[in-house]
């Protein structure tokens, strides 16, 4: 079984469709969306619809803080994020809002756990930004592999038999064996708004047969997204960010 794990799409239609096109050629059996379908980007309607279609045909999806903020205006956010959410909210149909509101905080499949942020308190949207920050997640679940997003910077952490956590080097495009003597936490990079210095859309593929995880990058036409963002009057830093990936 080959799983594609996508997160933080952030209403970026060009990035989302580039990744889906890429997946179509890679023999993927199931797609998992780790949340933040909307927010920041100019195409929340299209991205939500696409996610609804995918879920209807078997994809797993969990809720991100931006998805949550659509239905909960009290959700605390930075000013740029807030402006983008307020721009997004009136554009979504009731069905789309209902879909986002109904997304679960976590999902599981066999020995895998999917969650948007830190697994120990999913609704608090804690960032997993270091190996030590992953300790909470490892403690909160027995799952062998935990997938999360939220950070927009990919990271892989192992937890060995003695409970020692260590960040492991990621080599994009190369399959890494998730050896079974350890448990693993993968922070998957963002599809629609990467922040690790590379503008290309990030996602990951897990092959459960070979037990190998591959972090991938797919370039997309960010120029179009940037033009739409500006035309929509969304905050300019969001546009710059898409072009530089920081």
């Amino acid at each position: 079984m080959r799983l594609a794990i996508l997160t933080d799409i952030h209403a970026n239609r060009e990035a989302f469709s580039a990744v889906l096109d890429d997946l179509a050629e890679r023999g993927i059996d199931r797609i998992v969306l780790l949340g933040d379908l909307v927010g920041y980007g100019p195409d929340p309607e299209w991205c939500t619809d696409r996610a609804m279609t995918l879920v209807a045909s078997g994809a797993l999806a969990v809720k991100g803080n931006h998805d949550h903020a659509i239905g909960d205006p009290t959700e605390s956010m930075g000013s740029t994020a807030r402006r983008a959410i307020e721009w997004t909210r009136p554009r979504l149909s009731e069905a789309q809002k209902a879909f986002l509101a109904a997304l679960p905080l976590t999902a599981t499949a066999d020995d895998l756990l999917f969650v948007h942020a830190s697994a120990d308190s999913p609704a608090d949207w804690v960032y997993v930004t270091s190996d030590l920050a992953a300790l909470g997640s490892f403690g909160a679940t027995k799952a062998r592999v935990i997938f999360c997003g939220h950070v927009h910077v990919p990271m892989l952490v192992s937890c060995d038999l003695r409970g020692t956590v260590r960040a492991q080097e990621i080599k994009p495009g190369l399959a890494l064996p998730l050896i079974r003597s350890r448990r693993w936490l993968a922070v998957v990079g963002s599809v629609g708004q990467p922040r690790d210095g590379t503008p290309a859309a990030g996602y990951a593929i897990l092959d459960t047969a070979t037990n190998e995880l591959t972090f991938r990058r797919t370039p997309y036409d960010s120029g179009t997204t940037v033009a739409k963002l500006r035309a929509a009057g969304l905050p300019e830093p969001l546009a710059t960010r898409l072009m530089t990936g920081v």
Binding site: R162, P177, I179, S181
Partner: peptide
Amino acid sequence: DGDDGPTIVGFEVEQM
């Protein structure tokens, strides 16, 4: 015992 770090890691490396 369950805490034999170097042997375990060496074997993990071989298994990878």
